[in-house]
Nucleic acid binder design. Structure first.
Lengths: 217, 217
DNA sequence: GTCTATAATAGGATAGAC
DNA sequence: GTCTATCCTATTATAGAC
């Protein structure tokens, strides 16, 4: 459900990552015990330490793996070209698709913002994750700036707009039961995922884009 | 820093709530130990149980207190009257003001979405908190619906719009160091709080409101 | 690479003196 | 209302057999 490319490589390690991803998404870093992870994997507690030196390293690996997938898809979407607004639309599509397809992603990403206190930021997996985030944000900022410079996008604050877009995507798909109640239907249902994409793009096009092409798709 | 109205009533209880609010905001429910809370309050661990029957009850009390403050301010803003768009604008003002003034609020609110797993939902404080949220969301939905029916607001999905507004406010002020990096300055600085309000209202007015009054303030 | 056993600690919660 | 002492469980992590 969560594995992406290399599936046959290191089967145990990937299974641990999958189970840990699910549990961390539900209960968070501090709320997840390694015993529970081991039980879901079907191993003894101690065996986990043969694959990851510590709980923090396991958590960092989970986050880094998710960010790697997201970066790959976002950069591929950028490479497809088009106007700045075209690429921004495609980023929304990719992000909504990914967050909707992997229910753990939004929760892990949102939670990882808070758990800075518990992680030291010194593990290589953490450094890798931070670098990926830095690159994604930089690419997004460049995208918005290009749109603004070309006149296709209103002269908004790039930082605040990025924050709004993260909130509108990551928060939404992380909101769980609360989100279901507000929407009135499951957030992850196909119809509501489609609606999320449409509503968000409509808001952006009428809220950010000055040249109204009418093609909100 | 967090006490609102009744300050002299039950001094220990309020101090416990204040300290717990700070720690829960930083480290979350599972990540916060009662020993740490007691130490910050200046009491022994056991003394906490004289005021709250369990850790879950303490947490629920923290959340309920915050929601009580927010509801009071939001309902007061509604009572001031005006068009649906006027009241929506005022809600944004109130929410941004509150979340900016109390740095713990956004984090606690966002975290409380996730910790449903750890809380049973059976404590009276939890029920109270759920009721408050239900009332706030219902009032917000009614507000949007009124605006849509009157033609002042585009026929958007009410649920998805509420989700977007929560993301744009609560997520933003909960984003911590990550938000600071994206914005380039402290999220809680006076200038960036002001900018948040302006950017958000501009997005709403050009993204939701059909009748362009030009008065984005 | 996985297991059992164990260390060492921290967690929430209770009992009872003052 | 706060304290000390204590209980019991769960925690992360290590040692060493297989």
């Amino acid at each position: 459900m969560a594995a992406t490319a290399a599936k046959s490589r290191q089967p145990s390690r990937d299974k641990i990552l999958d189970c840990a991803e699910n549990l961390f998404a539900r209960r968070g870093f501090a709320g997840t015990g390694l015993a529970e992870v081991a039980e879901h994997v079907g191993l003894g507690k101690s065996s986990l330490f043969h694959h990851f030196r510590s709980k923090a390293e396991l958590y960092a690996a989970v986050v880094a793996r998710i960010l790697g997938v997201i970066e790959e898809r976002l950069m591929r979407a950028l490479a497809a070209g088009g106007t700045a607004v075209d690429r921004l639309d495609r980023w929304i599509d990719v992000l909504v698709d990914l967050l909707a397809a992997h229910r753990t992603y939004a929760r892990i990403l949102l939670r990882s913002l808070f758990e800075d206190d518990e992680l030291t930021g010194e593990l290589p997996e953490e450094r890798e994750a931070n670098e990926i985030i830095r690159r994604i944000v930089a690419a997004g900022a460049a995208l918005l700036k290009e749109g603004i410079d070309s006149g296709a996008i209103r002269p908004v604050s790039v930082g605040h707009t990025i924050q709004t877009l993260i909130g509108a995507t990551v928060y939404h798909f992380a909101s769980g039961d609360f989100g279901d109640e507000i929407i009135g239907r499951p957030v992850f249902s196909a119809s509501e995922v489609r609606r999320r994409r449409d509503e968000l793009k409509a808001l952006i096009h009428r809220g950010l884009v000055t040249s109204q092409t009418g093609e909100t798709r």
